[in-house]
């Protein structure tokens, strides 16, 4: 089987049957979009929507309109990207979506009904249906809780308090398996003992256990490399297909937004300057801001025009 070629390198065209751990963990090699790619979500029921949503901040005498009368309709199972540069108001908007901030004007609708988070109990009820992941995986964990406890918390939050030890164990193994982590290797470890990539995966395992209706991901892949990014995206998409959750990506990565989203909202100075299907928004932008943004991103098939700078 083995032959030496002229350069003296061992040539072996047939991969040896014995697989490495890495291969056993991950046989999927590329991102699968499932059945939801290019689906028309406008017929799906509304999940989260907003009319004239505005947030004004007062600091001393200065008034800043962070989010300025934005309208949006996020449907069930849809993957939405909100794209904006720093200072565009996307963080403020995401806080309002999460219910951490109330809009100063306008209304957010949950399942088509005005969202009511006026009391603590109502807020907690709302938070059961919405989860967030952030760009820095390290900051999302209590560093003094073991990973078992982190996952147990998720099971408890989903009303699994009375489950037997065995059922819980099975759930945890399943969740870790879903993100290609080995539960046996994680148990009894603290979050800081994990690598960045493992932590991102664990975060998705948490989402898997929680199965929220809405997942808000704030720059979830900006801290990881292009290769690991594909894995994370793949897991998120698979999770979306399985649970029908709505995923809201907050990002400045235009290429990523184009690739993954079902619909895109471009945000500038607190306003949505353009929104729609990614093909329409990214390939035939109409708003001047979108045009500029797209032209400023380096590409590989089209030349990058540096003469338009500043």
């Amino acid at each position: 089987m083995k032959t030496k070629n002229e350069t003296g390198i061992l040539k072996d065209s047939v991969p040896v049957g014995q697989k490495t751990d890495a291969q056993m963990q991950d046989d999927r090699e590329s991102v699968s979009f499932g059945s939801n790619r290019n689906k028309d979500f406008s017929k799906e029921p509304l999940c989260l929507s907003g009319k004239g949503v505005t947030r004004v901040f007062h600091t001393g005498k200065v008034t800043t309109v962070a989010v300025d009368h934005v309208n949006f309709e996020f449907h069930k199972g849809e993957l939405i990207s909100i794209v904006g540069e720093s200072g565009s108001g996307k963080t403020t908007l995401s806080k309002m979506l999460l219910g951490l901030l109330e809009p100063t004007e306008g209304e957010i609708f949950f399942h088509g009904q005005p969202r009511d988070i006026s009391s603590g109990a109502k807020k907690r009820e709302y938070w059961k249906g919405i989860q967030a992941i952030f760009q820095d995986p390290f900051s999302s964990y209590n560093q003094f809780h073991k990973i078992d406890a982190v996952l147990d918390d998720c099971i408890n939050m989903r009303g699994g308090k009375n489950l037997s030890k065995e059922e819980r164990f099975n759930m945890k193994v399943e969740a870790c398996g879903f993100v290609n982590l080995k539960y046996a290797e994680l148990t009894n470890k603290y979050p800081f003992e994990l690598s960045g990539g493992q932590m991102q995966r664990l975060m998705i395992a948490r989402i898997f256990l929680l199965k929220p209706e809405i997942l808000l991901a704030d720059e979830p892949t900006s801290m990881i490399d292009a290769c690991s990014r594909a894995t994370i995206l793949d897991m998120l998409l698979k999770l979306r297909d399985e649970t029908g959750m709505t995923v809201i990506f907050i990002t400045h990565d235009i290429g990523l937004a184009y690739y993954i989203s079902d619909s895109v909202y471009i945000m500038e100075h607190g306003k949505f300057v353009e929104c729609g299907k990614p093909d329409k928004v990214m390939l035939t932008p109409e708003a001047p801001y979108t045009k500029r943004l797209i032209s400023d991103v380096p590409k590989i098939h089209e030349p990058w025009d540096l003469s338009t700078v500043g």
């Binding site: 490495t20 751990d21 890495a22 291969q23 963990q25 991950d26 999927r28 090699e29 590329s30 991102v31 290609n180 690598s195 990539g197 292009a226 290769c227 690991s228 990014r229 594909a230 894995t231 995206l233 793949d234 990565d253 235009i254 290429g255 990523l256 937004a257 184009y258 690739y259 990614p278 093909d279 990214m282 390939l283 797209i294 991103v297 380096p298 590409k299 590989i300 098939h301 089209e302």
Partner: peptide, 25 residues
């Protein structure tokens, strides 16, 4: 090849690319 196949740019055709994940660390 894995690296180059993870490139995402807002260009025609990007949405049809199959992103390749490289497992492991």
């Amino acid at each position: 090849r894995g690296l180059m196949r993870s490139i995402l740019v807002p260009e025609e055709g990007t949405r049809d690319v199959k992103l390749t994940a490289i497992p492991g660390t």
